[in-house]
Design a protein around this nucleic acid. Structure first.
Length: 323
DNA sequence: CGGATTTGACCTGCGC
DNA sequence: GCGCAGGTCAAATCCG
């Protein structure tokens, strides 16, 4: 569906990260380690307070750790404020991208009490989607449901990271369970059917935008993460977490092996998931270690084409053209 | 061989 | 009711 109304709708075309640049974008910049704390400076967020804190400040700011920077709950009613109200009537794709938690009192570990939510440590989302498949019972239930309540999701928060690496290591183990091409990333008209590596490379770098879905591999931990690149700035990776881990970071990744990971604010995540188990000394040590690591990795990173994906594109294109 | 990834199909929610 | 887009499933495939 791509009606002209839709095309003219500013919300349809709105990119939550439009207008950000290297100095204003809410990402982790490993040279400066800036963390954008609350709101975007571009419409529809005009009038909201926007403020930066550096990574150190953030580490010591209990408010920051007790709640997500960006609450991206697709349906959660606990996200309040003018931004939420204005946006909630528009397309869900926009909702998911621009919702920002501006309620300082909210704690991500305590979902909105007005909607019943299983306290199973993060499996609520999973359950609701699984039980519907091919189930007559569910179908009839669906018919009888008065006006369905919007599905309660685990709190989400996003990290924006300026890096060449697509999947950032955060210390946890993830299994990929899906990948989708996202909207607003049309192929260039001149490269409809890439037949050469060069064509595919253009598609990949300029227009192709995929979102990958990951699930924590630890049993009974329903935390999910979504990874995609910003269409405005391909050097920025948007990582969205949903839920909270009910376990510690796998041992093998917590010790010296941390140097093998691909660059992510581990200590920040550790604070988010386990805010009560850290202390300042450990925090500072980890922080310095992390800064050094990130800077080292930035120097080491090379822009290497994803030849596997290129191959897939070319071969799928060839398949489609074949009679 | 077991775990991870890929990928087409399917489900669900939403707007029209 | 229909079409679209996001999200998920699960069989096939890959890989160490």
């Amino acid at each position: 569906m791509s009606s002209s109304n839709e095309k003219n709708d500013p919300l349809y075309n709105y990119d939550p990260f439009q207008g950000f640049n290297s100095s204003t974008f809410p990402f982790f910049d490993y040279n400066n380690l800036l963390v954008y704390s609350q709101a975007a400076p571009t419409p529809p967020f005009q009038g909201l307070d926007s403020s930066y804190m550096n990574f150190t400040d953030c580490l010591h700011d209990q408010n920051s750790f007790s709640r997500p920077f960006f609450d991206m709950s697709g349906s959660s009613s606990d996200v309040v404020g003018p931004v939420h109200d204005n946006i909630s009537d528009s397309k869900q794709t926009v909702n998911d991208s621009v919702r920002i938690n501006i309620d300082n009192t909210e704690n991500p570990s305590t979902p909105n009490s007005s909607v019943s939510s299983p306290s199973n440590g993060g499996t609520a989302v999973e359950d609701s989607s699984k039980t519907n498949k091919g189930s007559e019972h569910e179908k009839s239930k669906k018919v009888n449901k008065p006006k369905k309540e919007r599905q309660q999701r685990e709190p989400r928060f996003a990290f924006l990271t300026k890096t060449e690496i697509d999947v950032l290591e955060d210390g946890y183990r993830w299994r990929k369970y899906g990948q989708k091409a996202v909207k607003n990333s049309p192929y260039p008209s001149t490269v409809k059917n890439p037949s050469t590596l060069a064509d595919s490379w253009v598609m990949l770098n300029c227009y192709m935008r995929c979102r990958s879905y990951y699930r924590c591999t630890t049993q009974k931990c329903g935390v999910k993460k979504r990874v995609e690149r910003s269409c405005q700035d391909p050097s920025v990776v948007i990582t969205t977490y949903e839920g909270r881990h009910n376990h510690q970071i796998p041992i093998s990744l917590r010790g010296n092996n941390i140097i093998s990971s691909a660059g992510f604010p581990h200590e920040f995540l550790a604070h988010y998931f386990f805010p009560s188990t850290s202390n300042h000394q450990e925090e500072n040590s980890m922080q310095h270690q992390s800064v050094a690591l990130h800077q080292h990795q930035q120097q080491q990173q090379l822009q290497v084409p994803d030849y596997g994906l290129l191959h897939n594109l070319v071969s799928s294109s060839t398949r489609k053209q074949a009679p």
